[in-house]
Write a protein that binds this DNA or RNA. Structure first.
Lengths: 223, 223
DNA sequence: GTCTATAGTAGGATAGAC
DNA sequence: GTCTATCCTACTATAGAC
């Protein structure tokens, strides 16, 4: 059946990139993994890049669907980071973040892959941003923190940590735990409320003022 | 001259991986970029992987030497993040972080590359950790924050952001700026001193207590 | 839709002349 | 140390039989 072969190829592509990395992924290795004739990749998808793009899209949508309810139920930064920990553990077992990372590496020069990977990451970023926005809805921090930027940073950090995990698993685990501890700072700042926000705003303004000067760094000069 | 050819190959390898990514890097493309005969790669390095590993090591050492003085001069988190911004901009121009990211992607299944890339990243992490340790030397936060883990997270985040930059440059810029704003939280927490630290410790303890229970999340129950 | 066969290219690596 | 020439393998992609 046609759709069955398509699905086998998509699954095979994901498993291959997971196992061999982007540098070891080819029409032949994918077909062998999928147990399908190599020529069928070109019949169904036209090129290897198109197959990878499609696989990236499908895999991401599936995973996000899987976590949507849990993301919607997150009620604090602590819970968000705890979900991040579980998500990291689960996806690492499945190898989905690794797939995204490998595709991201491959997309740097493959223009057929770039938009698909960018789109996949944007899906994750949008989900995270939604949670952040909800968590900080009533917080004075909302106006100070750049939510889309922070969501992007979190996603990118996940990808980087996953890549680093491939060469030093112990160290990458520590990195994630350190971030979780750090996130508690946001909660505390949030609870301190107006006090922290005022400090934060003042601090950011002072820094921007320094930046606009030509002179090198100098201590806070109240003007 | 022998050492001249070796150097040309190392430079050529870096430029190739920068331009074509790990998936497009081969003995032939490297040799063409370096303007050197392809067979010389195997004469001088034995294999492409060995050449890449050597290039990774050399490039990292060179860049760290370049920044060592600036890292040593950092006197605040604000300055550290500002250095991070400049470093990101400079290295992106030169493509050095991209090289590290591509090698990291390639190292997932290339066991001759993995130790070299892991070592290179450890050099960066060690430098960052040194600065963090110095900045927090007299701070009560030092005992709460996991410095090696945080240094690892920062390095990994840099790599992830650089990869994301390849498919969405605008978004990755926002991510870095968001992190800088967030880092101000640490400075503020540091200045609040004992107050923040006590809050932080209490919060972390509360979280660990919750974790050890089988029940799902429940609001702070003062016991 | 799926197969075999194959064209044409690019890959790692080596032998041997210079 | 550097070159040419070459082997063999793997790659993308297509043509054509079934």
């Amino acid at each position: 059946m046609a759709s069955d072969t398509r699905q086998r190829l998509i699954d095979g592509a994901l498993e291959t990139i997971r196992r061999d990395g982007i540098a070891g992924t080819s029409a032949r290795t994918i077909a062998a993994t999928a147990g399908v004739n190599q020529a069928l990749i070109f019949y169904h998808f036209g090129s290897v890049g198109t197959l990878l793009a499609e696989a990236c899209r499908r895999a991401t949508e599936e995973r996000i669907d899987h976590y949507r309810d849990q993301l919607a139920g997150v009620a604090s930064f602590d819970e968000l980071l705890d979900l991040g920990r579980r998500l990291h553990a689960e996806e690492r077992e499945l190898g989905n973040v690794a797939v995204l990372a490998q595709m991201l590496a491959g997309a740097q020069r493959d223009e057929s892959l770039a938009p698909a990977v960018a789109g996949a990451l944007r899906l994750w970023i949008a989900e995270i941003e939604r949670v952040l926005t909800r968590l900080l809805a009533d917080s004075p921090l909302a106006g100070v923190i750049d939510l889309p930027g922070l969501a992007t940073a979190i996603s990118a950090a996940f990808v980087g940590i996953e890549l680093y995990d491939g060469v030093d698993a112990a160290a990458s685990g520590n990195a994630l735990e350190a971030l979780r501890r750090l996130a508690v700072l946001i909660e505390i700042a949030d609870e301190l409320g107006p006090v922290a926000t005022r400090l934060l705003r003042r601090r950011l303004a002072a820094r921007d003022r320094r930046r606009s000067e030509t002179a090198p760094y100098r201590k806070k000069s109240p003007r």
